[in-house]
């Protein structure tokens, strides 16, 4: 991308389509989109002013502009609110495209560091988000310092990791699963 000009090219079109198909989004369904704009009217990404939001993302996917998604991080700002899915008149399930694109990007190692952190936390501790100082907060309320989740149960944590190792996370995680 240079300045404000996007070059249309079919160079990565087949590649992108195959990848998003593999990641669970039907390109044929996607191409039903008539760009009516309904999703964009209430999309949090659009309202926040991200460069790419759902309507543009659908269009860019149909045009096969793979590089946009590898270079621009907008897709990682999707709130998963599913309002687009609820109101899309063509029922293309726009949110499923976001997930497919993220999955594609992960396989190209194009993801924000926060995503890597949360995946690492998830695998190592069973929780994507762990905010420091929780022990103190919990104690204050008379709750056990460590919640009764996988975090406090070593046997379950081992089993959990055994299970997660068998998923695609093992292939895409930019850190070792051990």
């Amino acid at each position: 991308m240079e300045g404000n000009l996007i070059k249309l090219s079919e160079e990565f079109l087949q590649e992108l389509w195959e990848e998003i198909e593999e990641m669970g989004m039907s390109v044929k369904d996607l191409r039903r989109c008539i760009q009516c704009g309904r999703c964009a009217a209430t999309c949090p990404m659009a309202l926040a002013g991200l460069d790419y939001f759902i309507k543009k993302i659908v269009h860019a996917s149909i045009l096969g502009l793979k590089e946009i998604f590898l270079e621009d991080s907008s897709i990682w700002g999707c709130q998963s609110c599913n309002r687009c899915v609820e109101i899309c008149p063509m029922d293309i399930k726009p949110y499923e495209l976001i997930l497919a694109l993220r999955r594609m990007c992960m396989r190209n190692y194009a993801m924000p560091s926060s995503t890597i952190d949360s995946l690492r936390n998830y695998y190592e501790k069973g929780h994507s988000v762990i905010t420091a100082g929780y022990e103190e907060r919990r104690r204050k309320l008379g709750l056990p310092e460590v919640p009764p989740t996988v975090l406090s149960n070593e046997e379950m944590r081992k089993k959990f990791q055994e299970v997660i190792k068998q998923t695609a996370l093992a292939e895409v995680a930019p850190f070792p699963l051990d």
């Binding site: 760009q35 704009g37 309904r38 964009a40 009217a41 209430t42 999309c43 659009a46 309202l47 109101i87």
Partner: peptide, 28 residues
């Protein structure tokens, strides 16, 4: 490019329309 996404009732009796405007490239 402005298929309306929501019409919401405002307590003052007005109706708020939310749409996308293709020409402004922005939600309106």
């Amino acid at each position: 490019g402005g298929r309306v996404s929501a019409v919401d009732i405002k307590p003052n009796g007005k109706l708020r329309i939310r749409a996308f405007d293709n020409d402004l490239c922005s939600p309106v």
